[in-house]
Amino acid sequence: MEDNKMLKVSSNPHVRDCESTTTIMMDVLIALIPTTLFGVYNSGDYRMYSALLIFITVTTCVLSELLFQKLLNKKTTINDLSAVVTGLLLALNLPCNFPLWMAVIGALFAIVVVKQIFGGIGQNIMNPALAARCFLFLSFTSHMTNFVIDGVTKPTPLAELKNGDVTTPLRNMFMGNVGGTLGETSTIAILIGAAYLLIRRIIDYRIPFAYIASFSVFILIFGDNRFDLEYLAMHLCGGGLMLGAFFMATDYVTAPITPMGKVIYGIILGVLTGLFRIFGPNAEGVSFAIIFGNILVPLIEKVTMPTVFGYGKKKKGGKKA
């Protein structure tokens, strides 16, 4: 009888999977290593500076989350590493020479305004890193679009594409030694990370695949050079699409939870990105497309409720008439 005092009781199930929020965030960080390393390497003279930029956004995100939760007497959640992911993603969405104080503002905006005010992890409506990117873009447009490569300011391949005079070889776009934000330029580095996430089943293939597929179809039909595969390849590799499709659109919190919803969400993002890029005033359109898509998520979920087991197709057998 003595032993029994020690017995724990709880509802079923009595075993749990080893994956946790923290391990998932850790996997995302691991997947971002190639992209991050390449981004720093690609910064040329700004290598030290860009490393510092990453450090600053990550630290600001973590500390602001900690402070916010301490001040409001909430449980601290910085151990789940989600603030680290937000900080890193934000840095990867900035030009390598971006002013530090602006980056701090962006990080504070991401954590305090977009994430914590809505209730912390899991409660935010928009992707914090992307919302902060859009916020910075609107507030400091010139700093956000000033890309330095090999010591000279150059337009991104996408901007060249928009203006109709492309000088960057497609190969460079794929490898990444082109202008762009820290993390978006190297398609190959992003794909390595994406493969890791897909294999570890951290992200669902539906969103990125539907996104890229619908975007491709849109560009082939409505792009400046219709049905030109090289032109399409430039659109895919020359801007923020890959980073957006694999690392931003797949953010759990701001994507639909239903399987069908994920497909539709991906398709919507592809079409919106195409619309913004082809018909909008800016060359890029990924961030705004995803933020816009985030807002549509509740609606998407509502119309994509899965068929509950046993309510689907007509049942065979049983009582025959």
């Binding site: 724990k8 709880s10 946790s20 998932i24 209730g119 899991g122 701001t254 994507a255 239903t258 994920k262």
Partner: peptide, 17 residues
């Protein structure tokens, strides 16, 4: 195994679905 963990916010990962 259950007592080991503390519940935190749902991150909407869709695994349960």
């Amino acid at each position: 195994e259950v007592a080991k963990h503390e519940a935190s916010n749902c991150i909407n990962c869709g695994r349960c679905v």
